[in-house]
Nucleic acid binder design. Structure first.
Lengths: 250, 250
DNA sequence: GTTTGAGGTTGATGTTCATCAACCCAGGGC
DNA sequence: GCCCTGGGTTGATGAACATCAACCTCAAAC
């Protein structure tokens, strides 16, 4: 209502991928300097979403893939009989919606976990552009393949790991992803609620809560609400059963 | 040893995708008639593998994607600490190895569940060819996106479904995949052992066995070893929580 | 024929985690 | 100030499934 807010919603400024601070994480990574303008011509700056807002909803027409600029997004699938599964968390520079390329509808919903801004890559131009820019085609194959691997890793966790192992893994994954974004790997805000963690990892909220307190008693971390500080990363790695030089899986 | 066997192992005949009975399930599906020869030039007929043989092994150099011609393949991932997760079962016409496009090594192992013949699509030519044939690029995006969805569905099952629901889902998935291959949807041979089912679905072998006997007591199916006959598909659908017009998920 | 071993089934017991319930805490609206 | 609500924590109980162990079956090997 207040007219001052209008600024952001009105004509979105044209994005410059070149100047974007995420250019080394996001799509520009895969595009030659001289071709960057072709990418920019296709990318549309999306809205800003406030916490809890849907970026897109499952089964609505698939319009575009979404790159997170700031904030964070969770994706969820619902089954006919109504229960919901969180399928992923996405941080700035990461691409949401690759699982929907195979159909005309979104295969999942995407919800802003925070005040979140995004860029859009329209579906119809995605294939065309990656035809023109082989580097981009390569990158998309790479990303999708990675996404398959991540999802297999998640499946492995869900079927073989204990609650503690799952949570340790998630924390380490976030940690290293923050690090790649030049943020502290040991002291950060969880973008998601306990509920989302529980759902994602196939646990009950109560279990998540209990594991967090257990980890605190063991001095592995401190947590107040969403603020987390990892105190003993190596111990967490051991629990997560990762070799210390290992790349985290999701 | 017997010289008569040599026939198959010796010079593999050049494949003709046009004449292949799987052309409406496999890659040719996505390629225009006049371009089929370009696909055929790239496809290599692979060996024939006997039950239990590896088609490729995790962490070995990624050489090619594999299309199943006959038989069946399971894929598995192992973690450093040694436990193994079956990530998928592949029937004729299906493509194995899409999760490895993102690196130079295979992300999983592929093992023949039966006497199995395959076609190979060499990694280096995959991208080139899909650049030349936009229909193929589209198809690969489609396949990979589908694979992500499948894997998410699997994750959902592993985190939310009971043993009975999981097994019913798997049986229905196989059923409909056999049907698409013009085989009976109600009477078929399971390509995999109970062990593989258990691992794939995140259960103990004993649990799988018990569920099978329970299903038999309820007259939902009969099973003798790997031979299965589904007697009440609708009941199984209800258990699996699928709407009856629903596409199975993996 | 016998042996052997992998794959499969069945039963008894144990453990992890879900569920139910109560309670706390912080923030927003009034 | 007060209430209310959503998110989080803690404790007690129960259920689904894993685990352990024994046993069966059948086919291949000898």
């Amino acid at each position: 209502m207040a007219p001052t807010i209008k600024l952001q919603k009105a004509a979105p400024l044209k994005v410059s991928c070149q100047q974007c601070s995420l250019s080394n994480l996001c799509l520009p990574l895969a595009v030659d300097e001289q071709d960057l303008d072709r990418l920019e011509n296709v990318i549309e700056q999306g809205r800003i979403y406030s916490r809890g807002e849907y970026v897109f909803e499952q089964n609505s027409p698939f319009r575009s893939c979404i790159a997170v600029r700031s904030g964070a997004i969770k994706t969820t699938m619902v089954t006919e009989n109504g229960d919901e599964q969180v399928t992923g968390f996405y941080l700035p520079g990461e691409l949401v919606g690759l699982d929907s390329l195979s159909s005309s509808k979104y295969a999942c919903s995407a919800k802003a976990l925070d005040r979140t801004s995004v860029c859009e890559l329209p579906a119809d131009q995605l294939e065309e552009l990656s035809h023109k820019l082989p580097g981009l085609q390569h990158h998309f194959f790479h990303l999708m393949s990675q996404e398959i691997q991540n999802s297999h890793q998640l499946a492995l966790m869900l079927s073989k790991r204990t609650a503690e192992e799952r949570i340790a893994s998630l924390l380490l994954s976030l940690s290293s992803r923050f690090q790649r974004r030049r943020l502290s790997p040991t002291h950060f805000q969880l973008p998601m609620a306990r509920n989302d963690i529980a759902n994602f990892l196939g646990l009950a909220v109560e279990t998540v809560s209990r594991v967090f307190t257990r980890f605190q008693q063991q001095r592995l971390l401190t947590a107040r609400g969403r603020e987390v500080e990892l105190l003993d990363v190596n111990a967490l790695r051991q629990i997560a059963q990762e070799a210390s030089d290992d790349k985290p899986c999701f």
